[in-house]
């Protein structure tokens, strides 16, 4: 009985939260379906009087969103995979080995995130130019790695710490080496954390504006976020187009989340079978 009351309460709270979460999306959709003229009506119309898909059509006809999606996907996926892999390795090292410099290094890794990005623009620019990586996707991935990697290391440290150490021992008795323990025991058991980390890095790279707008310059390097941000400017503002971009721009991330959710929710069980 009490349990049911709890469930009802939780459901009500979630519904309330959903209103807060979904309201902006609802308004984004309504605005995206309006003509620009109607979007600027006072007071606003709750529902488009003449619904139109123009804003969505423009994305694929007048602007090259196919290319932008390609750029964003390649850059964000590479960043996500690289940073969670390297971060997980580092986190395993920090978690399982008595490193004298451990606290210092973990602190250092966090400190690297404290310099405001604006100050990194100039130096990164010079570094990437010297390496011939300015205005390339590789250059961008490197820049993102420096932001995502520290976060990935910290997140994975938190998750790997929660994996019982006895499992390592058991695997060692079974003849597993360090890397074997990491790959067969620790990683599968911290799979939910790995998924969260990957998602985090992906979204961070996907949503960036600072690096994309300073470390690239050509039209062929434009990402989805940059393209969306450019619909609101000094000499050009188009609200329906912006909202359409914001809605469509989020889809790949949602697909990624849905794809990863399986491991995210069943991490423990799946890992246990392998372990």
């Amino acid at each position: 009985m009490r349990r049911r009351a709890g469930t009802v309460l939780a459901t009500a709270a979630l519904l309330l939260l959903s209103v807060y979460v979904l309201f902006p999306f609802g308004w984004m959709l309504v605005t995206a379906l309006k003509t620009e003229q109607e979007a600027l009506r006072i007071p606003s119309t709750w529902w488009p009087h003449q619904p139109t898909l123009d804003a969505f059509v423009v994305m694929w006809t007048r602007k090259n969103y196919a290319l932008y999606f390609f750029n964003s996907t390649v850059i964000s996926l590479s960043t996500a995979v690289l940073s969670s892999a390297v971060g997980a390795l580092a986190a395993y090292g920090f978690s399982r080995f008595p490193l004298r410099a451990g606290t210092f290094l973990m602190g250092f890794i966090l400190t690297t995130q404290m310099l405001p990005g604006v100050l990194l623009v100039g130096p990164y620019f010079r570094m990437l130019s010297a390496l011939g990586l300015y205005d390339t996707r590789t250059g961008l991935v490197i820049a993102f790695l420096t932001i995502c990697l520290p976060f990935a290391t910290w997140m994975m440290k938190g998750f790997i710490d929660s994996v019982p150490r006895e499992l390592d021992e058991a695997a060692r008795v079974d003849g597993c080496g360090w890397l074997g323990i990491f790959l067969r025991v620790v990683l599968p058991l911290s799979l939910p954390g790995l998924v969260a980390t990957t998602l985090f890095a992906f979204l961070l790279a996907w949503g960036d504006l600072l690096w994309v707008s300073t470390l690239t310059h050509s039209e062929s390097m434009v990402t989805v976020t940059l393209a969306i941000a450019r619909t609101v400017q000094e000499f050009y503002v188009n609200w329906p187009e912006l909202m359409a971009g914001a809605l469509i721009g989020g889809l790949p991330s949602i697909v990624l989340y849905l794809a990863l959710q399986r491991w995210f929710v069943q991490g423990l069980t799946a890992g246990a079978v392998k372990g």
């Binding site: 707008s213 050509s218 039209e219 941000a229 450019r230 400017q233 000094e234």
Partner: peptide
């Protein structure tokens, strides 16, 4: 000529 669009603010 390779055009490079940029926003007024940036």
């Amino acid at each position: 000529i390779v055009p490079e669009p940029i926003s007024y603010g940036e």
